[in-house]
Design a protein around this nucleic acid. Structure first.
Length: 316
DNA sequence: CGCCAGGTTAGAG
DNA sequence: CTCTAACATGGC
């Protein structure tokens, strides 16, 4: 027996005692205070997104596994359980571990956000937001290189244009897997990007600065100066210092990546324009807050700056 | 046309 | 340490 998913990929099933079981599928139980739909709506925020495909209530994602591409679909069949369907590989223990690890990082499933909710429920600005978006979590970037380059791309330009630049960059330099006519991309490999002349990025409308930064960051990975494994072992301050030694990574970019890749709850992208706009509205200012004012407003969220920022972004 | 956008750097004070 | 100009271009 077989049925098709939305991309026409055939999914084998077996029937036991009138229950249909998908082959090459597994489930992940999610923690308290996790809402898949809020995360999904974040994933759907740009029509130019090229690193995953959303369709209604599910998302399809391509990652690189130990033995090649792993294409999978995540949905929430019933509350509290994510259903993961592998689309191009058999379910082995290794593949399962690789895909589950990715998903746990992607949706920040291993952070206990209840302490944040305790703080936020006592805050007049966040109280309503955490009710409205209960279970919304940081939709992260398990790939540190992706996280940093995406942040650099987003520096000082509007989000729509940032997605345009990312799309061009990924389509030109990222690996592609074609499945039944649909294309799935991996974020470009730093080893490939490290070899590029920055000028090659100008036609994509990267500024000179962004081009230089992007290749420089790739070279830091390629040379071994920078890696996810290295930073994973460090406390926030130390990891931030390592990142900020690289040209193009300032305080905002470093904290953004530390929030999106490592889920430091106290990572704090202080200079963020979106955050400033959210605070301007909440504090009823007729101008954007100064950095000192942002710091002051955030004192009460100490230890949970990343999550406070996340919910303030969501308020926009 | 003007202003702003999920900033960073280098240089001046 | 803080302040500022330059960078560079799309979206509204």
């Amino acid at each position: 027996m077989a049925q098709q998913n939305f991309d026409g990929v055939e999914i084998e099933t077996v029937t036991i005692n009138d229950h249909i079981y998908m082959k090459n599928a597994f489930s992940i139980s999610v923690p308290e205070a996790f809402d898949f739909n809020h995360c999904l709506s974040f994933l759907k925020r740009s029509p130019r997104e090229v690193l995953h495909v959303c369709d209604g209530d599910r998302v399809v994602k391509l990652i690189r596994g130990e033995k090649g591409y792993e294409l999978f679909e995540v949905s929430e069949k019933r509350k509290g359980t994510l259903h993961v369907q592998l689309l191009n590989t058999s379910l082995t223990e290794k593949v399962r571990t690789s895909v589950e690890t990715y998903i746990r990082e992607w949706f920040d499933l291993d952070t206990d956000i209840r302490p944040f909710y305790t703080i936020a429920s006592r805050d007049r600005h966040l109280k309503e937001l955490i009710k409205k978006y209960h279970g919304y979590r940081i939709v992260g970037h398990p790939d540190l290189f992706e996280s940093l380059v995406w942040a650099v791309i987003g520096q000082q330009i509007n989000l729509g244009f940032a997605y345009t630049l990312k799309q061009r960059f990924v389509e030109q330099f990222g690996e592609r897997l074609q499945v039944n006519g649909a294309a799935y991309y991996l974020f470009p490999d730093p080893v490939v990007v490290a070899e590029l002349n920055p000028e090659y990025l100008y036609p994509l409308q990267f500024s000179r600065q962004k081009s230089t930064y992007t290749v420089g960051i790739a070279q830091a990975f390629a040379s071994g100066e920078l890696s996810k494994e290295k930073l994973k072992a460090m406390p926030l301050q130390e990891a931030k210092e390592v990142l900020m030694r690289i040209k193009g990574i300032g305080n905002w970019t470093a904290n953004y990546a530390l929030m999106k890749t490592f889920h430091f709850p106290d990572a704090f992208p202080l200079e963020d324009a979106g955050l400033h706009n959210a605070l301007k509205r909440i504090l009823k200012l007729d101008r954007k807050p100064t950095l000192a004012e942002v710091m002051k407003a955030f004192r009460k969220y100490k230890g949970w700056e990343a999550y406070a920022t996340l919910y303030l972004w969501k308020s926009l």
